[in-house]
Design a protein around this nucleic acid. Structure first.
Length: 215
DNA sequence: GACCAGGCACATC
DNA sequence: GATGTGCATGGT
């Protein structure tokens, strides 16, 4: 399985090159983006990010001091904006309660412990927590999302209804716990999902087509 | 107008 | 533990 996973990685990397993820200027921006992009296209999230930046509030203090009624219109473009307003607030409250609003302090927490704590914050599920850990704080945690599951399931590497933890375990049990590898790998899977897989039936041009049978 | 997009919480069985 | 539903905008 390790060989298979690395073969797929190499194929994707050859085909698409480094993806340079996550597109953000700060760790905090990654975290906000991770919440805003829940079941939402990144394009819609970008608009919200730009608005937050424009108002100068894309930082812990900024979000913390905004009223919900001020925050909501800024993130409207990202959809589910009432819920996401609450979720951003819950997250920032947690950041202040446990780490004095300091992202660096949060980064010093043991990753396993922090993951548990993040999952305890309302509005943060496994994918959002892991995105915060991997892309925000550079911890070696593999992020699983809809694309990851779809691709692996189509290539018969997992069952269609595999759980999040199950898919994550597949990567983390068989690859070295390398933050850079996990970062690039997941980003490549998303790119593949957004491009080739989106244009079914065009599996014949998929860069990883066929390799699963050689493993 | 239907369908989808880098999920999650909550109710119900 | 599995399944169903609400949440909402903007692009195709």
């Amino acid at each position: 399985m390790q060989r298979l996973l690395m073969n797929i990685y190499r194929k994707l990397h050859q085909a698409y090159g480094p993806r340079d993820w996550w597109p953000a200027e700060t760790s905090f921006e990654v975290m906000v983006g991770a919440i805003l992009t829940q079941n939402t296209s990144w394009r819609n999230v970008e608009k919200a990010i730009q608005k937050l930046k424009g108002k100068g509030v894309l930082n812990p203090e900024g979000i913390h001091h905004l009223k919900k009624s001020q925050l909501a219109p800024l993130i409207k473009s990202s959809g589910y904006y009432r819920i996401k307003t609450d979720r951003l607030k819950y997250f920032v409250d947690f950041l202040f309660d446990d780490y004095c609003g300091d992202v660096k302090k949060m980064g010093k927490e043991r990753p396993g412990k922090l993951r548990e704590k993040l999952l305890g914050v309302k509005g943060i599920g496994p994918e959002t927590a892991d995105s915060i850990l991997l892309y925000g704080l550079k911890k070696p945690i593999f992020v699983v999302d809809a694309y990851t599951k779809r691709i692996l399931s189509r290539h018969r590497m997992i069952s269609e209804n595999a759980s999040y933890e199950e898919v994550q375990k597949l990567f983390m049990d068989h690859l070295s716990l390398d933050e850079k590898l996990f970062n690039e790998y997941h980003a490549l899977l998303v790119h593949l999902g957004k491009t080739v897989c989106k244009k079914i039936p065009r599996c014949e041009i998929c860069p990883i087509r066929g390799i699963e049978h050689r493993a």
